[in-house]
């Protein structure tokens, strides 16, 4: 039996979440097949074929797959899936949109947000916004699961080439939505969930204009910018900046939380970061309970100093 991984890509390359899912896939010790769906996506299939542990790449190339609308993907995936014991996708909005559909049509459960694979039937996943970890077992014949990307390292390219085969596109039997448009948040900075350093701001910034202070720090560090729900709700930044239970889950090497009190909601999205720094004027803020390094003080004096001194440090090292 083997494993099918549904690749998420940005029409140019595989996304980091897919590479983390691939690492999770290797723990099953079965042959791994990747399916790349899209329009003119052969280049991505080539890329997929060069990762360690991949035995075969299926490529489904069709104009209807240009925007990867779930309904358009389902029928093709359904036909192919019946040959596999394990079906994996990243636990991103892409994977969460498509995988439950597939599982329902296969009449099996889907396991969301897997962070650890104990054996071929037993998995660990966070519940209650990460305040609990559930060990669950499935007896379904096909195990369908999304993998939380931050829980696994990204797979590495090796020189080897897996075989690439075309798989026929099957049109959906369902009524289908039409893609209208996609508005990307434009940023020169790294993507939040893929960045090795994330700096996040909260209500402490008081207004939208003050967030520029955070952005200069981010640019100095080559970091992504995040925010707490409070900052998003107050309109300081767009909603896709949000880190937390209802936003993005990040686990960078360094997470700097500035002017963020540390509500459970926010902690759920960043507590697995390797090193956490908190800067807050309230010495009793809950964020300090999870921070490796805490600095109590006014962010409006600390932040410019920090940015300048990091610039100096970078120049000297």
């Amino acid at each position: 039996m083997s494993l099918l991984l549904i690749a998420e890509h940005d029409k140019k390359k595989l996304l980091p979440a897919t590479l983390a899912t691939l690492t999770a896939a290797t723990t099953f010790g079965v042959p791994i097949h990747i399916i790349v769906m899209g329009m003119s996506c052969h280049g991505i299939a080539e890329e997929a074929s060069s990762y360690k542990g991949v035995e075969k790449v299926w490529v489904v190339d069709n104009p209807l797959l240009d925007h990867l609308v779930a309904e358009d993907m389902t029928e093709t995936l359904l036909t192919l899936s019946r040959n596999y014991e394990f079906i994996l996708a990243p636990a991103t909005t892409f994977g969460k949109n498509i995988l439950p559909r597939l599982a329902a049509l296969l009449d099996v459960a889907q396991i969301s947000d897997v962070i650890s694979i104990e054996d071929t039937n037993t998995f660990v996943r966070p519940i209650y916004a990460g305040n609990g970890l559930a060990r669950i077992r499935t007896e379904d014949s096909i195990k369908v699961m999304t993998i939380r990307p931050t829980a696994f390292e990204k797979a590495e390219i090796i020189a080897a080439r897996a075989s690439i085969e075309s798989y026929p596109f099957r049109e959906t039997l369902s009524l289908r939505p039409l893609f209208v448009k996609r508005e990307e948040s434009i940023s020169k900075r790294p993507e939040l969930t893929a960045a090795s350093i994330v700096v996040s701001g909260g209500r402490g910034f008081q207004n939208k204009e003050n967030f520029a202070l955070l952005e200069s720090l981010a640019d100095q560090l080559g970091a992504a910018v995040g925010a707490s729900r409070a900052a998003v709700d107050a309109g300081f930044v767009p909603n896709d900046y949000q880190v937390g239970q209802t936003g993005k889950v990040v686990a960078p090497n360094l997470y700097i939380a500035i002017g963020i009190s540390g509500a459970i909601q926010h902690l759920a999205g960043m507590k697995d970061s390797k090193v956490i720094v908190a800067i807050n004027k309230d010495a009793d803020a809950p964020i300090f309970k999870v921070a490796d390094y805490g600095l109590v003080g006014d962010l409006f004096t600390i932040l410019p100093e920090l940015t300048t001194k990091i610039a100096l440090l970078r120049r000297s090292s």
């Binding site: 209208v180 996609r182 948040s185």
Partner: peptide
């Protein structure tokens, strides 16, 4: 969606 907003009509 991750990285932005997507509009669909159905």
């Amino acid at each position: 969606v991750d990285g932005g907003l997507e509009t669909l009509k159905m």
